[in-house]
Design a protein around this nucleic acid. Structure first.
Lengths: 192, 192
DNA sequence: CTCGATATGGAACGTCTGTTCTATTAAAGC
DNA sequence: GCTTTAATAGAACAGACGTTCCATATCGAG
């Protein structure tokens, strides 16, 4: 049996993720990663492949975590308005922690999606998943009489998705949490 | 008197703007600019300064054009709902033309704002201008009885601004115009 | 024609980039 | 103790990057 890894693969991946999130793909050099992760060049290549592969792995991890979080949240038995209010609040807090690096998914959509097929595929799939999860939760809310049956759950889900994108951009570039919360509150009025 | 410039300074600047818009700052090399603008390196440096200066000039031009457009539109005597509906429609069409390069301002907010003070200052000022223009138009609409007086015009303006950001991201990465229009329609329901 | 300013092509520059190679050290299992 | 695998440091690489310099050609005004 070989020697055991001396660094936690998942933990270092998360550190790389945070660097990419704060600085973007192009603005994060491999030398930056070596310096700030405390792992040698060669070990990074052996463990994660090249820079693109590392980025994609980090992005996939980020998206999966987000999907899991949303799915769990939407399964809670609370009223849909309460659930969505909490969800937006959580997202705003998460995107504004430690400065305002914004959302890795949104940053990837802007920086890489148009030129990198793998990234585009990842975010497109996530968008569909997001919309499906929300649409089915909203449909259930309609059956329970929580929101009007005349509304289109898919359109509502897409609207909420677009709202999340806007909040992520604003949190990265403007960083005013109070106005983000107010926007979330107004956005959820579409349910009324 | 010296020799006259052989290229249209404003026209070439617009071409550079489109390149930056489609590919971002880091992904657009100076060699790309030389190749695709049909102007020599030296002339570009003499006319616009270095790459950063060229980008900032292009971004400023883009923001100013956007502000002018919005200001003119909001001054029209039409009802506020009709005006905003048209405005969103125009923005969606403009952001989705020629592929989906998205919005140079939003792209700059994501790629450069956190690391480039000049860019951050430009977009922050634009955000304030946008919100002020919208807030005062909404206040006027309240005085005319077009929308309820109980609503906060500033909060509504910020909500609409955040909505625009989200639509720009979605148009760049997803490019589904139909869902963008539907989102715009739902967003404007906050006025009801 | 001449002078002054401009445009242009190409070479040159350091620097940074992502990536690979080599050599050495270190732990875990047989 | 040997083998195997992993970690590390450092050198080396070729290519791209932004930028500057130089020599030359071109046009307008005097």
């Amino acid at each position: 049996m070989p020697r055991a890894k001396e660094f936690d693969e998942a933990e270092v991946l998360d550190q790389a993720l945070e660097l990419f999130r704060a600085r973007g793909f192009k603005h994060t050099s491999f030398a930056d990663l070596v310096d700030e992760l405390g792992v040698s060049r060669q070990s990074l290549y052996d463990t994660y492949g090249d820079k693109q592969a590392l980025y994609h792995t980090a992005l996939k991890r980020y998206l999966d975590r987000g999907t899991d979080f949303i799915r769990r949240k939407l399964e809670e038995p609370a009223p849909v308005r309460k659930t969505l209010t909490d969800l937006f609040e959580d997202m705003i807090s998460a995107n504004c922690e430690c400065g305002s690096p914004g959302c890795l998914m949104v940053n990837s959509m802007v920086e890489l999606s148009p030129h990198d097929d793998a990234t585009r595929a990842l975010v497109l799939e996530h968008a569909r998943t997001f919309e499906n999860l929300f649409a089915s939760r909203l449909s259930a809310a309609q059956r329970k009489g929580e929101i009007a049956k005349a509304k289109d759950p898919v359109a509502l889900a897409q609207f909420l998705y677009h709202t999340v994108l806007g909040l992520a951009v604003a949190s990265r570039a403007l960083g005013d949490q109070a106005s983000l919360r107010q926007t979330a509150r107004l956005a959820l009025q579409v349910l009324d």
